[in-house]
Design a protein around this nucleic acid. Structure first.
Lengths: 151, 151
DNA sequence: CTTGAATCCTACTTGATAGATAGGATATGC
DNA sequence: GCATATCCTATCTATCAAGTAGGATTCAAG
């Protein structure tokens, strides 16, 4: 699971929008709240808008707001909007892979791995991401001591 | 979870080594068995050797073999050997991230997502990857219908 | 109906990285 | 000493991530 700078920034921006919801917040405010380059934040907000995750209002007093209630947008959606598919294998979707010989069973493995990623990122809403009150299954994953150790 | 060409190739090579274990197999044979560029396969096998996942034998009748029994090497180890950490957020380990404001809870989320990835890739051995006889939890993930659908 | 603050659009730069390929030096068994 | 391997160093090319630049467009308030 590689999250790019864009992806990280997008999620940080999104949870910041949660706090002010449903007021609009300008790109400058969002950028300074999370200490991101303003222009880059604008680009990312453009992606989120085209994915219909945020609405924008132009002009003075304008800015951005979440297009749906914070409980009904998942972190996974935000990441997909800016980074593309959550899981890829050599640039292909897991279910599109196909091998011969000893590797014939790998597609099932790739699909299972993607399902595991989804079970976290698609099950956590922006509201939960902002509050820290994740679903039980996610809390359990983060509560394991080993989960915090590098490998 | 992004798996690079190197990563995919490495796993395909590794499961091919399972089938012949503990005989040595040459880079050329491995490459043609999985239809990979021979020279690139050599590079990857070098990575696996330096990670102590395979042993090599030089000279005629030489080649590569798994350094441990196929049941005691995980797919995750193979991927790490060639691609680095399974999960990164903006180039950092999940537990190394830190944010202010509305994003303070994100590190726990990143860690949970990594744990989910690990629960698949680190729990499946090369033997299981070759046979398709995955752990029950992994089989269940792959058995879900939705798991095979793109999002 | 102008002004200021905001979004929006197009283009560009810069550096790093993936995915190879090339050629040969080195080791080994027969 | 010869055939067959691994192993080492170097190079290439295209793509992409990350960020910057400049200005055109929109809109509410006064």
């Amino acid at each position: 699971m590689q999250v790019s700078a864009r992806g990280e920034y997008a999620v940080r921006i999104a949870v910041t929008l949660v706090t002010g919801h449903p007021r609009t917040i300008s790109a400058s405010s969002l950028a300074s709240a999370q200490q991101l380059p303003r222009k880059f934040a604008e680009v990312i907000l453009g992606d989120l808008r085209r994915a219909h995750l945020v609405d924008s209002v132009r002009g003075v007093e304008g800015g951005y707001r979440l297009a749906r209630p914070p409980a009904r947008i998942s972190v996974g959606e935000v990441l997909r909007a800016v980074d593309g598919p959550l899981s890829e294998v050599r640039g292909r979707r897991p279910e599109e892979t196909s091998y011969e010989g000893a590797a014939v069973n790998l597609p099932r493995l790739w699909v299972a791995a993607r399902a595991a990623v989804r079970s976290v990122l698609d099950e956590v809403s922006l509201e939960q991401a902002a509050s820290g009150d994740f679903p039980v299954s996610v809390k359990e994953l983060a509560a394991e001591e080993d989960a915090w150790l590098p490998r």
